[in-house]
């Protein structure tokens, strides 16, 4: 009973101490921050090795190849590519590791380009095809959306000088972007403040456990 009580208490105390160590960075770099930094880097690196083994290597390679070889033998191909990466440690055979990297980047780009084209160009295109006019409030505000999109795109013309009417439209475009960024900034800062409040609340709770109500 006592053990179940003491252990969470110690974890909370460790959380409190490490939080304060990390906050000490706000003053300046110091040994306490260095300790917290090295601890979190070391722990996270080790943690991710174990995590990747149990969530990726074991279920996706070891289990499939060793326990279900007849049906899922092809999983050995990415496994071989992974082994080829280890050739980097040999100066003479380091070139072998370029091939899995090439396959990885090629597949990633092949996946990303059509999807980016669809999500960031074609889908935006059809989403901007909206009715405009003065018949309703929606149609009226749509005018600003369409104008904002067109001016924003004009800002990203690189091979034409931003002068005259074209330059004016590009300037409106960057203003539209900045308004959007401002709204996004405010929104995200609010989210960060809520995280900070949560951490302060944690500190308060732990201090109350040890020193009573504050």
């Amino acid at each position: 009973m006592q053990e179940t009580f003491i252990l969470p208490l110690l974890w909370h105390l460790l959380g409190l101490v490490l939080t304060l160590f990390t906050f000490s960075f706000l003053y300046k770099d110091n040994p306490f921050y260095k300790f917290a930094e090295h601890l979190v880097v070391g722990v996270s690196a080790g943690y991710f090795v174990v995590l990747l083994f149990w969530t990726s290597l074991k279920p996706k390679l070891i289990d499939t190849v060793f326990y279900n070889f007849s049906n899922e033998w092809f999983y050995i191909l990415p496994g071989l590519l992974g082994i080829m990466m280890w050739f980097r440690f040999s100066r003479k055979l380091a070139w072998v590791s370029r091939y899995p990297i090439a396959v990885y980047i090629g597949i990633g780009s092949g996946l990303a380009i059509p999807l980016n084209m669809q999500n960031f160009v074609n889908r935006q295109l059809s989403a901007t095809m909206i009715p405009v006019g003065f018949g309703s409030a929606t149609e009226f505000w749509n005018i600003f959306i369409v104008a904002g999109v067109i001016c924003g795109v004009i800002y990203f013309f690189f091979s034409k000088e931003h002068k005259g009417l074209f330059g004016g439209l590009a300037k409106i475009g960057i203003w539209v972007l900045m308004v959007g960024f401002g709204a996004s900034f405010g929104f995200t800062v609010m989210a960060r403040i809520s995280l900070f409040v949560n951490r302060i609340s944690f500190l308060k709770d732990v201090i109350e456990i040890f020193f009573g109500s504050v």
């Binding site: 090439a102 090629g106 780009s109 092949g110 059509p114």
Partner: peptide, 21 residues
Amino acid sequence: PVAVAVLIFASFSVAFVIVAG
């Protein structure tokens, strides 16, 4: 379309490595 793009880019990348060699 994604499969075609993947094959095109993967073959391009491998061919570039051969050129780089």
